[in-house]
Amino acid sequence: MPLAFSTLGLPAHPLPAVLALAADHGYDGLELRAAPGEPVHTGLNSAERRAAARQFTAAAVTPLTVASYVGIAEPGPDAPVLADLLAHLHLAADLGAPYVRVFPRGGADATEGTRTAAHRLLELADTAVDLGVTILVETHDSHRSGAALAALLAATPHPAVGALWDVMHTWLSGETPTDSYRLLAPRLGYVQVKDVASAEDLTPLPLGTGVLPLPACLAQLPADTWISWEYEAPWHPTAASFAPQLADGQAYLTSHLTA
């Protein structure tokens, strides 16, 4: 299975340095946190985008995802959300990334959030196809479980919209890995892995040293599924540095994917 990691674990690191870490430690791709202060974001001009794309090609690393912070089910007017998503779709297309990640971020009414998200996603789904990009909604916040995200996807029957399975959030929702995979598999883009000490302490840990059911999650996946390690360093300043863990993380994932 192809492996990636998220630049969330290396905040503000220059792109060449992150690409070198990926190439040197056996990772095939990167999830690119698209936020101010990061090397990849929607404010890049055309020349900067071309330069970034060339760096990926030279390193033989895939720009897997532009990880946006768009809240596709967020209450409020559609126009700002659609404009933000469209900007990220164009960024992904310019970089050659196949995916854009969005969050749900719906309000208290889950049904209304699903309706809002479906309407917005369908507004831009054909544009995503034209750009060669798929929009992946992450299991997160208002649609944390596989069941909740599957309902959103059922309301959005378009091939340019799929699921990003964050295994921590489906676990926090109380779903088993078997149920989460069954619900998400028909529209699954790829899987985010991580590890934590408990539901009360979400400080990131080295893979395999916490409580998340990673082996059970990984064992179900087809051989061509991308696996990406997301290490939430910015939110947990006491967490150990991410870069020194990359070799062991790659070895852990490889051992479980070939078992």
Rank of each mutant, 00 (worst) to 15 (best):
T7I: 07
G9P: 13
G9R: 06
L15H: 03
V18I: 14
L19F: 14
L19V: 05
A20Q: 14
A23E: 07
D28T: 01
G29W: 03
A35S: 13
P36T: 07
H41M: 08
S46R: 15
S46F: 12
R50M: 08
A52H: 15
R54Y: 05
Q55Y: 05
Q55T: 04
A59S: 12
V61I: 15
P63Q: 10
A73K: 05
P77K: 07
P77W: 05
L82G: 04
D84M: 05
L85R: 06
H88S: 08
L91S: 13
L91G: 11
D94R: 09
G96T: 04
A97V: 03
A97Q: 07
D109Y: 07
A118I: 06
H119F: 08
L121I: 01
A128D: 01
S145T: 03
L152E: 13
A155D: 09
V161A: 14
T176N: 11
P177E: 10
Y181C: 03
P186L: 04
L188W: 02
V191A: 09
V191Q: 04
Q192W: 10
V196D: 06
V196Q: 09
A199M: 09
L205C: 00
P206I: 00
P206W: 01
L207T: 01
G208K: 01
T209L: 02
V211N: 07
L214N: 12
L218T: 05
P222N: 13
T225V: 01
W226P: 04
E230I: 00
Y231D: 06
Y231G: 01
W235A: 11
W235M: 07
A239V: 00
A239K: 00
A239S: 01
P244D: 04
Q245S: 15
D248H: 05
